[in-house]
Nucleic acid binder design. Structure first.
Lengths: 218, 218
DNA sequence: ATTACTACTCACCGAGTAA
DNA sequence: TTTACTCGGTGAGTAGTAA
């Protein structure tokens, strides 16, 4: 409805239209057209004044924003080469605590703060993927654009570059998936970092099933 | 709903999702999510196969087209500088038959056929605008981009350039608004041409009120 | 001619539940 | 665990009509 009004000129100017004509144009009844206008007005998406010859209608800035917003969202989906996000599922398991060693390295930590926007809890949440679908999806993920964390050297050794994806864990907690400190795990394992200790925050225990939604970077 | 699936990856790949998860993501019930998937499948917008762990969903080409189509329409409205169309209303009146003389000129006629896509009936339908709103809108129209018909000379005289807008008369008949053979009418008059004799086609009589939707050329 | 109120209908949504 | 049926309530659309 808002779109129809926009199309008929209310996006760019103040248009005069009768509810009857609007109804014909949109294939609804005059009464419904009238009520729709009242509702759009209440929502603050259109400005509406009634004359004896019909309604004067124009989209408000809020209404225009609504359309622009929808437009932008569609633009991203339609024009993107990669999916915006993929969701994986697996079982939590205890690792060897090796992740913590890497995360604590200042060379990584500074970049996490800068590029992910949070200071990671020193430890990783390990997830084992247990279906072919998840493992296949995990592999596809490697081709999708990521946040790049650069490698570095310190006194004793070299640390390789790392790829990250912003991640939503169990539809609640924010964190990031990291690929991967030349890990000994194969591609059926995910390593997640987060600002907080996820096992406490989400009350996760070993062997529990969790879902992670992983966002690519278009 | 279709958008939500696209956003979750079904636009670019085959995704596995449970109706429960989909419901949580979209704020509806599991039952409704399930039914929505069935309906989208029936419409042919998604391809759906059911496994014991959830549904495998991917958008069909038809489904993708739907989103692209909506995207294009929004793009036009949001990015356009001018309204896509304006609607004017007025009373039909009889002119002096002068329009016919101009329309019959081959120099114009050939361009009408080429640029408007129809061979105009030799005569114009004249409409007198009778409210301030319509006259003001008619004046705004002069700034909007139009189909340009070039002027020409024949043995006896010179014919000036003309601007046209595709037009829908009474929400039924196609034609074009023409601006204007250096007309003696002021800006409260519209001259419409059409492939057929509109007075017969639409059963229009003098002094009858008609609506014309005029399309700009973005 | 308008807009928009009051009823009424119907379709959609979700709870319960089967498979 | 899944999906998806039936059924009952609610909200959206329309007819009639007042202003």
């Amino acid at each position: 409805m808002l779109y129809k009004l926009a199309e008929m000129g209310a996006y760019h100017r103040t248009m005069k239209v009768s509810t009857q004509y609007l109804a014909e144009k949109t294939g609804i009844s005059q009464q419904t057209a009238s009520r729709n206008l009242i509702e759009l007005d209440k929502l603050g998406w259109i400005k509406r004044s009634i004359t004896t010859e019909g309604c004067l209608i124009t989209l408000t800035d809020v209404g225009k924003e609504r359309l622009k917003n929808l437009y932008s969202k569609l633009k991203i989906v339609v024009e993107a080469v990669y999916p915006l996000s993929v969701t994986l599922e697996g079982l939590v398991f205890s690792g060897l605590g090796e992740g913590a060693y890497y995360i604590k390295q200042d060379g990584y930590r500074k970049q996490f703060i800068e590029k992910l926007g949070f200071d990671p809890y020193p430890g990783t949440l390990n997830i084992r993927l247990d279906t072919d679908y998840d493992i296949k999806t995990r592999q596809e993920l490697e081709n999708y654009p990521a946040i790049e964390i650069e490698g570095f050297k310190n006194e004793s050794r070299t640390f390789g570059p790392v790829k990250c994806y912003p991640t939503l864990i169990n539809n609640k907690a924010k964190g990031a998936l990291i690929f991967a400190f030349r890990t000994h795990y194969d591609s059926s394992v995910l390593e997640i970092i987060a600002p907080q200790y996820l096992r406490n925050q989400l009350k996760i225990k070993d062997q529990q099933k969790i879902k992670v939604e992983i966002f690519t970077m278009p």
